[in-house]
Write a protein that binds this DNA or RNA. Structure first.
Lengths: 222, 222
DNA sequence: ACATTGCATTTAGCATACATTATACTCAAG
DNA sequence: CTTGAGTATAATGTATGCTAAATGCAATGT
């Protein structure tokens, strides 16, 4: 295994992405190239290139001569993104479900139990989001649709900070864990239609929770 | 109206994009930063940044320390991209169709007649692709789904060179113009289901044509 | 008091120069 | 003849510094 040589640009991109996802950089905040460069001990070039990458990921807005800002997602944008996720993830699942092996299903269940015990332990942040996306990822793993997968990953990354915010403010995921169990069972039964329909509902349900929260926050600003 | 100041990066990106779409740069070709910089009379910095943008658009692969190449789409990737397009464009249309005004429909029809006369005149290249995407764009114009729209635009840009290739080699679009008429009629009737189903078939039909061509080319390489 | 123009400051865009990595080639050893 | 280490070369990655655009502020005139 060759040691991998990460470029400064990649490291900087990771650093900034993390800052945005954790909320250290809030939506709308300007991202000054010089400040970031100084903070991370690099020149402005890798910072610029990292910002360009993050723009492609939808995490920052980059305006010529004006600078970059962390993207601010309005309630209507959240709406659209989750609709897209429902559409794309159902598509992925439909292509993956028949290829899922028994081992895959066991793995998925293991992740689920881990997720449940993490929630019982009151682990509201980090772990739950990660485990959640690992569970979904497992179910999509046999889809052989790399581009679709990439899209889905991008959008879930982008929604992550809002999910985290929601977990923080609402004190946990409101979407019950048994929803995941139900989904898993549909997959076990290889019932494509039921599984995909349920998945869509599952995602759209999460959307509504987050949207409510966001609308409340948008309101409070006035 | 303020004059718009295009940055060198943007200009370079447009130049390279055009080279790729017209086929001047063929799939798989390496893109040397220094050569492009010299050719376009800029330094390597804007070239690098342009290449990063093009990577986000899926036109270029950028590998650290190895350089950039024009992306090479295999038959299976074409397959996936067109599936995605069918899914996303149907989604867009479903959100747009009820909002389409009479004027929109007239505009769409005008574009169609223009397209038809261009094809009659034997204009195999440029115009047809552009008019085609303008027609589709018109139908989606009331969707109020900016992110979805952006995705769709990205993917049609990315497929464009293959469509052009197909037009060149097969001597024209095989998808008959009356398909567009049929689609337009469904939209006039505000028959969402029929319109979307037909649109999907329309896109998947184009997919199969192009895939056949691509498989033949891939075969001939052996 | 208000708008407007011009200047100063800040910040982004870009060119040049240097550092680092990957690759092709040479040459020696097995 | 093949293989492998080492070196040369060419390409990419990054730092530094200069240029140009945008923003804020002050001064001037109405």
């Amino acid at each position: 295994m060759a040691i991998e040589h990460k470029t400064r640009t990649q490291l900087v991109a990771e650093a900034i992405r993390e800052k945005i996802l954790t909320g250290e950089i809030k939506a709308g905040d300007p991202l000054r190239q010089a400040a970031l460069a100084a903070e991370l001990n690099v020149s402005r070039i890798p910072v610029r290139e990292a910002l360009l990458q993050l723009e492609a990921e939808g995490l920052v807005n980059f305006e010529a001569h004006k600078g970059a800002t962390a993207t601010e997602l309005s309630a209507s944008q959240i709406d659209e993104i989750f609709d897209l996720r429902a559409l794309l993830e159902a598509e992925l699942l439909s292509h993956s479900i028949d290829g899922l092996t028994d081992q895959d299903l066991i793995d998925a269940e293991l992740i689920l139990t881990e997720l449940e015990s993490a929630m019982d332990a009151g682990d509201t942040h980090l772990a739950t989001g990660d485990l959640n996306s690992r569970f979904h990822g497992k179910l999509y793993s046999r889809a052989q649709r790399p581009q679709t997968r990439e899209l889905v990953d991008m959008y879930s990354k982008n929604s992550e900070r809002y999910v985290r915010m929601h977990i923080l403010l609402a004190g946990g995921l409101t979407t019950a864990p048994e929803e995941h169990r139900t989904l898993l069972n549909h997959c076990r039964a290889k019932d494509t239609k039921k599984a995909c329909d349920f998945l869509k509902k599952h995602i759209l349900g999460a959307k509504n929770d987050i949207k409510k929260l966001l609308l409340k926050i948008e309101d409070e600003k006035r």
